[in-house]
Design a protein around this nucleic acid. Structure first.
Lengths: 138, 138
DNA sequence: GTAACTGCAAAATATTTGCATCCTT
DNA sequence: AAGGATGCAAATATTTTGCAGTTAC
């Protein structure tokens, strides 16, 4: 795990520091997406708020994570798959937000349905967010 | 126009005030969705920031507008169609964000594709946000 | 050793709440 | 007249920025 995390950081020309390693591990260890607040809590208050902002910003810019739009307009982040390249994401699955437990889950096996756009529109990314009740809360 | 706006307010048991009338008109007059900031600007600095917050909140609660998830995590609002009822939205169309002009457009005629969820998941709402280039910017 | 990263402080923004006053019904 | 809505002030919360000290390479 540690090696994978370090490898990702190195590959993206980010120096390997405690906060980056820890935060990236959090993403790997959590099923779903994380909010800034989640990270603060789960990191055990260990890092400065500001460091978390900057770390997430760096990860976003490198394409390590992406953010997920939610209807409630909270800010969520999730790991990108390997084929995400800098500034260009292929986040090809559906996100599910459970209204009971509040978790956001990436449904890796549910692929994004194709959307027919009106003439003249060019699609570069499609985000699908389903909310409801997850299988654990049912 | 004025009559339509007033009718909507009355139907939702909201008293007809300057700010509500004006803000609701803004939504009718704009093609796409509006952010809090857009409204402040377009209203000509006429209303208190707080009033705008409270007005949008009231409209949301009554189901007059809904908010749109965006990848950039800004908060956008758009008019609901007539079949939105209090606290329960049928926001059954795709939202399109143009990366060129930055506008968010409701594609009324593109319906939400159905999403097959894994066993145990219950869906109550599906949001689809497509980003790319709109027909005017192409 | 140097460049990059962190943490603290503080600034800039954004959002919420309380309350007295004003407006709609 | 009564209840709701507004505007102001102020309390909170969120995000950004500057800078000195520390760490990775």
């Amino acid at each position: 795990m540690d090696e994978a995390v370090e490898h990702i950081l190195k590959r993206n020309l980010l120096s390997v520091t405690d906060s980056r390693r820890k935060i990236l591990e959090l993403f790997f260890n959590s099923q779903g997406a994380l909010s800034h607040g989640d990270i603060e809590k789960k990191a055990g208050e260990k890092f400065d708020r500001v460091t978390i902002y900057r770390t997430l910003q760096a990860f976003l810019e490198k394409g390590i994570i992406h953010n997920i739009p939610t209807a409630e307009n909270s800010v969520l982040y999730a790991l990108c798959k390997d084929d995400c390249t800098e500034g260009h994401h292929h986040d090809n699955h559906v996100h599910f937000i459970c209204n009971e437990c509040g978790n956001t889950i990436c449904l890796e096996n549910v692929s994004i349905p194709s959307v027919k756009l009106p003439k003249g529109f060019i699609s570069s990314q499609v985000d699908v967010v389903v909310s409801g009740v997850c299988k654990d809360c049912k």
